[in-house]
Amino acid sequence: MTMEQVLTILSGLARELITDADDLARVDVLAVGVQAGGDSGVTALIQLARLTGEAAADANAVPDAVDRVQDDTPLWRIVALVVVCFAVVRADYPSRQDAQAARTAVSARADMVYGEAGIYGPETIAWLVSMTGVATLTLSRTAAERAPAVRVETGVSLPSTLLAYDLYGDAGRAEALVDRNRVATSLVMPVSFEAVAP
Score class of each variant (00 low, 15 high):
residue 99 A to T: 09
residue 181 N to I: 04
residue 105 A to M: 04
residue 134 V to A: 11
residue 177 L to R: 11
residue 102 A to G: 06
residue 7 L to A: 09
residue 193 F to Y: 14
residue 122 P to G: 05
residue 53 G to V: 03
residue 75 L to Y: 05
residue 102 A to C: 07
residue 107 S to Q: 13
residue 146 R to V: 09
residue 9 I to D: 14
residue 134 V to M: 09
residue 11 S to E: 05
residue 38 G to T: 07
residue 157 S to F: 01
residue 60 N to E: 12
residue 195 A to N: 11
residue 92 D to H: 09
residue 26 R to N: 14
residue 59 A to C: 06
residue 6 V to T: 15
residue 4 E to G: 06
residue 19 T to A: 12
residue 78 I to E: 13
residue 92 D to I: 01
residue 111 D to F: 04
residue 47 Q to G: 07
residue 184 A to S: 13
residue 36 A to S: 11
residue 67 D to W: 00
residue 17 L to H: 09
residue 95 S to F: 05
residue 110 A to L: 01
residue 195 A to Y: 10
residue 66 V to A: 05
residue 114 Y to Q: 09
residue 64 D to L: 08
residue 163 L to V: 05
residue 9 I to R: 12
residue 17 L to G: 07
residue 50 R to T: 14
residue 12 G to N: 12
residue 106 V to F: 02
residue 104 T to A: 14
residue 64 D to W: 01
residue 128 L to N: 03
residue 140 S to C: 00
residue 194 E to P: 00
residue 155 G to W: 04
residue 59 A to D: 13
residue 37 G to E: 07
residue 139 L to C: 03
residue 165 Y to M: 09
residue 143 A to W: 02
residue 96 R to F: 05
residue 127 W to A: 15
residue 187 L to A: 11
residue 94 P to Y: 00
residue 147 A to C: 02
residue 125 I to M: 08
residue 13 L to N: 11
residue 173 R to L: 15
residue 142 T to Y: 01
residue 150 V to I: 14
residue 112 M to Q: 13
residue 41 G to V: 05
residue 189 M to N: 09
residue 137 L to E: 15
residue 134 V to F: 08
residue 100 Q to G: 14
residue 182 R to L: 12
residue 10 L to E: 13
residue 79 V to G: 04
residue 11 S to R: 01
